[in-house]
Write a protein that binds this DNA or RNA. Structure first.
Length: 490
RNA sequence: GCUCCCAUCGUCUAGAGGCCUAGGACAGCGGAUUCUCAGUCCGCGAACAACGGUUCAAAUCCGUUUGGGAGUACCA
């Protein structure tokens, strides 16, 4: 039997590291066994999926080097590989009809309000939350008549009312056992006639000849539904394997709030695909020879599905940075040069408008843009403290600005307008506190206070417009530099 | 609440009953090299969640507890 595995991301938002992680595992498994690795786009959520997002998934997988043998943009014998196109072909509706005809599924006419009320009542009564199956007992002929009359409905699967479900996941010592009675009558076809994940994935995995479904453990709970669906439809189920979920430092499921989750971000930051992949690989599968640095081709040659981790690993960027350093320093001079040029180019587009009118010669760009590229700047005390003020006063000003800007950063308002508003408000507040004090008003005037801020942030008395500069530099570097300037004044 | 999953240093892990007074890597700390920094090299601290079994022998097997996580959608 030829191994056929897949990843099936949903094109919502940015391409996710989790997709990269699961993709890597599937890719290695396919390559190890001479099988096929397939990409399928699951865009059945019409409200959230976008074409741009799908394009980013293709680009990111390509960037990582996780080449797929079949997929939307490469074709294959089992297409189309985008579920919305398969909806148009009537594929899911056909299977749903079959299930209803067999008596394994039924139309449900309950409104979302009804369902909401049900949930709340069950919650309050500390009962398990699930559909009470009231439409399941409707007379099929009567239900069919209401459907034909155009009444709003969904299609639900009939889960067994008694008995146990058991499935042995190869990564777990003991089989997963659940009582069928705890499993909901899952919606298969939504009100708009589109399939839910459960129906679509099971049908497509079968139609595409998938032999192993290697996915994250968040799916473990719905495994019984998927196996049951396979049985009802007369399919031989693929082997389902559930791996650990990537975690934040607090062990919760990895999230945008607490970690960079976008693959686009890693590329933009200059991480090497080799390093990211190496890092991701270590989270899921240790190298049998104990190697720390290895390529995915190397991993693929010794990949063992039974060695994959089930405990969700914490995603730690420090380790990535270390690996990145190893890979980067081993780059050929040519490729390293390309990486450096790319890093400069990326920022050039943003910076050029700021310095353009200040240029006399092309080489001026280098000195003018230096504060934007530099990791840190050195402050001169005499420049930091404008005439007529003293170091202690300026320190107070900068500390107030730092506080205001930190809030701006926390509120994700780090833009030209956002930072300017924050800084100006800090000035107004300080002046308002000391009414009619001319000296205080002078200290907090743009002329004095802004100039101190400019030196703190750029390390020099002249720069492009202050708030454009602050916005372009980014919150992290600005705040670091202000803190350094405050230190300098102690 | 209900259901399921998981459990070795701060983090990623090695470990499939004796090789374990638990090994490696990252991070931290100390030292060496060095004009500086980075790097490199050397060293230090740091874990089998707890309690009961099974066994001549348990990090490894079983049970209970504790802790963490996930699911509980007409999202995937």
């Amino acid at each position: 039997m030829t191994v056929r595995v897949r990843i099936a991301p949903s094109p919502t938002g940015d391409p996710h590291v989790g997709t990269g992680y699961i993709g890597l595992l599937n890719w290695c498994f396919a390559r190890r066994h001479g099988g096929k690795f397939i990409l399928r786009i699951e865009d059945t959520d019409r409200a959230r999926c976008t074409e741009a997002s799908a394009q980013n998934i293709y680009a990111s997988l390509k960037w990582l080097g996780l080449d797929y043998d079949e997929g939307p943009d490469v074709g294959g014998e089992h297409g189309p590989y985008v579920q919305s196109e398969r909806v148009a072909l009537g594929i899911y509706k056909r299977y749903s009809d079959q299930l209803v005809a067999q008596g394994d599924a039924y139309p449900c006419f309950c409104s979302s309000e009804t369902l909401d009320g049900m949930r709340k009542a069950q919650m309050a009564a500390k009962q398990p939350v699930m559909y009470d199956r009231r439409c399941r007992s409707l007379d099929p002929a009567e239900a069919a008549r209401r459907v034909a009359a155009g009444e709003a409905h969904v299609i639900r699967m009939k889960t067994p009312l008694e008995g146990d479900f058991s499935y042995k996941d190869r990564l777990r010592a003991k089989p997963t056992v659940k009582a069928w009675a705890d499993i909901d009558d899952q919606v298969l076809l939504k009100g708009d006639g589109w399939p839910t994940y459960h129906l679509a994935a099971v049908v497509d995995d079968h139609l595409m000849g998938i032999t192993h479904v290697i996915r994250a453990e968040e799916w473990l709970n719905s495994l019984p539904k998927h196996i049951l669906l396979n049985q009802m439809l007369g399919f031989t189920p693929p082997e389902y394997v559930h791996v650990g979920l990537l975690r934040n430092a607090d062990k919760s499921k990895i999230s945008k709030r607490k970690n960079p989750t976008s693959l686009l971000w890693y590329r933009q930051q200059g991480y090497l695909p080799e390093a990211l992949l190496n890092f991701l690989a270590q989270l899921g599968h240790s190298h049998p020879e104990g190697k720390e640095q290895f390529s995915i081709a190397d991993l693929a040659s010794c990949f063992d599905l039974d060695r994959v981790n089930v405990a969700g690993p914490v995603f730690d960027l420090k380790k990535l940075d270390h690996l990145q350093g190893l890979w980067f320093r081993q780059l050929t001079p040519e490729r390293m040069r390309d990486e450096v040029v790319r890093a400069i180019d990326d920022r050039f587009a943003q910076l050029f408008p700021l310095v353009r009118e200040r240029l006399t010669r092309g080489a001026d760009f280098i000195s003018l843009a230096e504060p934007f590229y530099a990791v840190t700047v050195n402050h001169r005390a005499d420049e930091l403290v404008p005439k007529g003020s003293d170091p202690a006063q300026i320190r107070g000003v900068l500390e107030a600005f730092a506080k205001a800007l930190k809030e701006t950063q926390a509120a994700e308002q780090w833009t030209v307008a956002g930072t300017e508003t924050a800084v100006r408000e800090a000035c107004s507040a300080a002046i308002a506190k000391a009414t009619e004090d001319a000296a205080v008003a002078a200290l907090w005037s743009p002329k004095v206070a802004f100039s101190a801020l400019r030196v703190a942030v750029t390390g020099r008395p002249n720069s492009p417009p202050l708030f454009d500069t602050i916005a372009a530099l980014g919150a992290v570097r600005c705040l670091e530099r202000i803190a350094a300037a405050v230190q300098r004044l102690r």
